[in-house]
Design a protein around this nucleic acid. Sequence first.
DNA 1: AGTACGATAGGACAAATGTCTTATAAAGCT
DNA 2: AGCTTTATAAGACATTTGTCCTATCGTACT
Lengths: 202, 202
Amino acid sequence: MSELSKKQQIVSASDLLFYQRGYAATSFADIAEAVQISRGNFYYHFKSKDSILDAVISLRLANSHKLLRDWESCSLSAAERIGCFINRLLVKQTDIMRYGCPVATLNTELAKLNHPAKATASMLSTVFRTWLRRQFFLLGEKSSADLLAMHLLSRSQGAATIANTFGEQKLLQQEVQLMHDWLRTCIKLPAGNISTPSLASA
Amino acid sequence: MSELSKKQQIVSASDLLFYQRGYAATSFADIAEAVQISRGNFYYHFKSKDSILDAVISLRLANSHKLLRDWESCSLSAAERIGCFINRLLVKQTDIMRYGCPVATLNTELAKLNHPAKATASMLSTVFRTWLRRQFFLLGEKSSADLLAMHLLSRSQGAATIANTFGEQKLLQQEVQLMHDWLRTCIKLPAGNISTPSLASA
DNA sequence: AGTACGATAGGACAAATGTCTTATAAAGCT
DNA sequence: AGCTTTATAAGACATTTGTCCTATCGTACT
């Protein structure tokens, strides 16, 4: 009945703990307790703490790809798909207010630590950047697709940050609304109901 | 000729190290090396590491207040003062790209650590929020001053985050430009040269 | 010169951390 | 059953951490 192998359990528990407490602040003892495993026994599955981080980043990359693929297979317009991206802030609002944006906080922590995995971790942001860029491209914004993508990425990370700092849900919701408004005006569609589709999780 | 007392030296060295490496990742040994002091001797000046953090936050609060006061004593219009706030991202761009936004990164780290000083640290953001709110209020945006202030704060922190993640100066500069554009349109001034004033540091 | 006090060095200390080794248990195969 | 491989436990190890204690240095004041 154990759906996940112990190795996978370690990775997903670490994924959560790295998000909640940060990478450096999460010790082997913490993970050991979460997975119910002996502390010294990690080295059967992983050769170092860094290699666990690598596995966690790989998992997050896979999850992100899956998320974006799902949004593309839902027969939505490109504008609606971008709306899904924006709404993700609401879907995850509880976690975001407690722990911030998972992508951004890992990146900044690894940047400060000068950690070798920083480059791989930044791929997580690149995935969203590339995906958003393609959506804007499909909307006809050929020349400024990357700028628009980065602008939206920037605003979503900023919204997550201030919500985390001030602990006010309303701030996050306001910023989400402003992003929807911005999207509507910037792609010259007068009044589509972009904000409605799919608050679906995953 | 020692302009600063040893205690002040400890605080300002910690200020820098906490920014560059993060609070938890900075050890007494690191600070000791920077200030050329014996490690065990901190407790003559501070009773714990947390109390150093408190002193650092106080210092940052004082510096922020001074910065904002300077901008107000420069006989600039409220719009120009907001422009100074936006331009701060450019003044500090080298550090921001390496270590992120000092205010945001400390807040998110303390949030993850569930650190008692989190509340005090968030005051740093509140200072800017309040100041920006007043500027927008002076511009006649009586009812939406706080919303505009938070929006700008959000965007500036988002810009810092993506610049730090991707390490691309151009991203930061683009976002700064967009913020100036937004400011110009949102306060209904047709074409003032808001972006010029005072790239002055401090 | 002698005393008092502020400042600093040096090291002790327990706890925690990442790492590694060895022994044992469990499971699969012949 | 016996053997082999996989998985787990338990603990040793050196290092680092924050904290605390004690001795010493230097300066100021009498």
